[in-house]
Simulated scan of single mutants.
Amino acid sequence: MDPIAPADARTLDAARTTEAAPDLASPGLRSRLGPLGLVLSGGISVQFGAAVAVLLMPRAGALGVVSLRLAFAAVVLLVVCRPRVRGLNRADWGTVLVFGVAMGGMNGLFYQAVDRIPLGAAVTLEVLGPLALSVIASRRLVNVLWAGLALCGVVLLSGGGFGGLDPVGVAFALGAGGMWAAYIIFSARTGARFPRADGLALAMVVSALLILPMGIADAGSRLLVPSTLGLGAAVALLSSVLPYTLELLALRRLPASTFAVLMSLEPAIAATAGFLVLHQALSAVDALAIALVIVASMGAVRTQVSGK
């Protein structure tokens, strides 16, 4: 299978680990929320976690926050998954290493972006990476049209040249999108090589070890302040542990194609989180730009699933 849907690697990892993964939540939770509610709750958790991370950045810096997030998430995944390391060959470790680098790069660049530009704009620009991967891998003319629609949205968001956005923040967001595309590819390869979520847990450790020295250099002793550690743990829970669990449960009852379309709503959720938590208001033009990118992402996913 070509890893091309802009629903990110969580779709691929969760689909491969559905049957073997432990039940991480009670049946009561699943029956109350339903699969659609689980996916939407996961998206809300990710983006509101990112909003909390932005609030934490004045204390610990962008790299400090992402270091805390990845470190706490790695610890939780190691405890829950208890991955086996015996018997892994060089190709297995190479796949995990590249997956971890892609994961760390994606998170590090994205947090640098949201430190400079609004959350909704950052996620909108970031989603262009998976969308470009979808267009390139599918080789269908209709997906070129979807890409053109997304490009129109980006032009609107930029105001004709990103004059209203920090150009460095824009560059970081686009870089995060490129790493997101690499993350999707190597998530698929990791999922094919490792049982359950073992590969994800090991890759999370790699990404944490990659970013942690940068976070320490950026924040120093500020990372050890108890309130900062507490908020960092909350960001890890909201942005990594909880959404992965909810999405894993949802995919037991929800087609992956539906899941992928729902994930395309994340720019809108991010814009809402930015407004409610960070008071980052959107103009009508910004809202239209985000809507165009969402429609383009959903169209690309549905085209890929239908094969038309």
Rank of each mutant, 00 (worst) to 15 (best):
A9H: 13
V80H: 01
D92I: 02
A233M: 01
V305R: 09
F186C: 09
A208D: 07
A102R: 02
R30D: 13
R86K: 11
F172G: 05
D23S: 09
L223D: 12
S264G: 14
S207W: 05
V154W: 04
V225C: 12
F72C: 10
A25M: 15
A273C: 10
E266I: 06
V225M: 13
A150K: 08
L131T: 11
S67M: 06
L157Y: 13
R302H: 12
Y111T: 04
S283F: 00
G87N: 01
S41P: 06
R139K: 14
W93N: 06
A260M: 05
R86W: 06
L288I: 15
A73V: 10
A137F: 11
V114K: 00
T124N: 01
Q112V: 00
L210W: 11
P167R: 15
G37Y: 13
T18R: 13
I44T: 14
A273P: 04
T303E: 05
M1E: 10
R32W: 15
G169W: 09
A102I: 03
I290D: 12
K308V: 10
A60R: 03
L262W: 05
Q112H: 05
N89F: 09
R222S: 14
S297W: 12
S283L: 02
Y183L: 08
I136M: 15
T11K: 11
L36S: 09
G161A: 07
G105W: 00
M179D: 01
A271G: 13
G87F: 09
G159R: 00
A250F: 08
R10S: 15
G105M: 01
A268M: 15
S31P: 01
L63K: 01
S26L: 15
V85P: 00
S221K: 15
L238G: 08
G108F: 02
M214G: 14
T245F: 03
H279W: 13
G175K: 07
R10M: 10
G105D: 02
S297G: 09
G28C: 08
A260L: 01
R82H: 08
M106D: 08
S45K: 08
P35M: 01
V39H: 04
G307L: 09
T11R: 14
R252K: 04
L223V: 06
P6R: 07
V277C: 13
V241P: 12
A271D: 12
T11G: 10
L209H: 10
L242I: 14
S67H: 08
V205R: 12
G199F: 07
D13W: 14
R116E: 02
A25Y: 10
G64A: 02
L55C: 05
R253V: 04
P255M: 04
D218I: 01
A268T: 11
A74I: 00
P58Q: 14
A137W: 04
A5T: 12
A256R: 12
F275I: 04
A287Q: 03
G61Y: 05
D218R: 07
R30W: 13
L141T: 14
V39Q: 07
S134I: 03
L151M: 15
C81L: 12
M298Y: 13
A14M: 06
W180R: 03
V46E: 00
A197S: 11
R139E: 11
A182M: 12
L77S: 07
